[in-house]
C-alpha cells in the first residue's frame, strides 16, 4: 500500500474556530500543508442538519485562498468564511464550485464580494438556472430556509476543459469532466502536495449517487486513475484518503450496477424488476444504501436502455 508521505508528516489538526456569533462554527482539518477540509456527515439533508452534509474546505497559497465548495446553507458558508479568516490573513480570491448540488453551493452568497471570482464547470451556470426553482422549493420544504435567486451565484469563469489557478507558490489545475456524477463536475489538483480534490466524483462510505451518467462516471474514473496523486478528497467520506485505492469501492459499485443492469435489459426484464433485484450484495458496504440505491438503478436503467444509440 502506498503511504501518503504528507499524511505521515502532518498531524491532522482539528481546529475549532471560535465563534463570533451563534451560527459560525465549523470544524476543519488540515489534510496536507495549506489544505483544510471540513468533514460532512452521512445523512439526508433535512431541517436538523440544514443540508450541511458535504465535505467542503479551502486551499491556501501565498497570495490567494481558493475556497472549494461553500456548504449546504448560507450559514455554513458564513462559518467557513470566518474560519478561513481566522486561519490565514491571505485573502479569498476564488470560490470553486465542484458541481451544482445544494450541499456544495448554498454557502456561495457568503463569499460574494468584490475581488472574489466564482469558478465552475462551463455547464454549471445553466445547471443552476434550470434547477434553482426546483431547489428553492425543496429547500423551503426539507431544509427549513428560503433561498433567493441571488443565492445561486453562477461562475464568473466557466471552465470548458482545464484551468490553472495561480494562488502564489501554488498552482491548482481545475478540470471540467464529462457528465458523470452530475453534468457539472469539476476536479481540482494541487501539484505541490499531490492532492486531488474530487468532491462528489468520489464517494466513500456514503453510497455514490448518480445524477448524471453511469457510463460517463465510469469513464471519468478511468481518466482520474491516471492522475499522479497521493491523496484524494472525497465529497462525502473521510477528509482525505489514499490514492488511487480510494476509488475502488465506488468503482466496484458502479461497475456492478452497469453489468447487472445491462444483463437485465438484454434479457428484456423491466426497470421495476431491476430496482428490486440489482446490486443488493453491496448493501452492507454503504451508508444511505436504501435511500439512494433504487433511484440509482432507475437512473442508470433509463440511460443504459439507450446506450447503443
Amino acid at each position: 500500500m502506498k503511504v501518503p508521505a504528507i499524511a505521515l508528516l502532518l498531524p491532522f489538526i482539528a481546529l475549532n474556530v471560535p465563534a463570533r456569533d451563534d451560527t459560525s462554527k465549523i470544524s476543519l482539518q488540515q489534510v496536507a500543508p495549506g489544505i483544510y477540509v471540513h468533514q460532512g456527515i452521512h445523512e439526508l439533508p433535512d431541517r436538523h442538519n440544514r443540508g450541511e452534509i458535504a465535505n467542503i474546505g479551502f486551499i491556501v497559497g501565498q497570495r490567494c485562498v481558493a475556497v472549494i465548495d461553500t456548504g449546504g446553507s448560507p450559514d455554513q458558508g458564513r462559518a467557513l468564511k470566518k474560519a478561513v479568516e481566522s486561519i490565514t490573513t491571505t485573502p479569498i480570491c476564488y470560490v470553486i464550485n465542484t458541481h451544482v448540488h445544494p450541499d456544495h453551493i448554498y454557502g456561495n452568497i457568503a463569499f460574494k464580494q468584490p475581488g472574489v471570482s466564482f469558478i465552475g464547470h462551463h455547464k454549471l451556470a445553466e445547471a443552476m438556472a434550470m434547477r434553482a426553482p426546483f431547489y428553492r422549493e425543496k429547500a423551503e420544504r426539507d431544509l427549513g430556509f428560503g433561498l433567493e435567486t441571488e443565492n445561486f451565484v453562477p461562475p464568473d469563469h466557466p471552465v470548458r476543459d482545464t484551468l490553472v489557478l495561480e494562488l502564489g507558490a501554488r498552482a491548482l489545475v481545475l478540470k471540467a469532466h464529462r457528465t458523470a456524477h452530475t453534468d457539472s463536475d469539476l476536479s481540482i489538483y494541487d501539484a505541490r502536495t499531490k492532492t486531488l480534490w474530487l468532491a462528489d466524483l468520489l464517494f466513500m462510505g456514503h453510497l455514490p449517487v448518480i445524477d448524471g451518467s453511469l457510463n460517463g462516471w465510469l469513464a471519468t474514473i478511468e481518466e482520474l486513475r491516471k492522475i499522479d496523486a497521493e491523496l484524494a478528497i472525497p465529497g462525502h467520506g473521510p477528509v482525505s484518503a489514499d490514492w488511487p485505492e480510494a476509488l475502488e469501492p465506488e468503482e466496484r459499485y458502479l461497475k456492478t450496477l452497469q453489468s447487472e443492469i445491462r444483463a437485465f435489459i438484454k434479457d428484456g426484464r423491466t426497470m421495476e424488476d431491476a430496482m428490486a433485484n440489482v446490486g443488493l450484495s453491496a448493501r452492507g458496504d454503504w451508508q444511505l444504501f436504501d435511500e439512494f440505491h433504487k433511484r440509482n438503478i432507475s437512473t442508470a436503467f433509463a440511460e443504459l436502455e439507450w446506450e447503443d444509440e
Binding site: 434550470m130 434547477r131 425543496k138 457528465t179 453534468d183 448524471g212 428484456g268 444509440e309
Partner: peptide, 26 residues
C-alpha cells in the same frame, strides 16, 4: 413530489439529437 418541475435530464443536447428514435423489444 416535484416530478413535473424536476429539472430536465442532464443531457438535453443528446436527448434532442436522439429525438424520434424508437425501438421495439419483444
Amino acid at each position: 413530489s416535484g416530478g413535473c418541475s424536476a429539472p430536465i435530464g442532464t443531457d438535453l443536447e443528446a436527448a434532442m439529437a436522439r429525438m424520434g428514435k424508437m425501438k421495439f423489444k419483444l
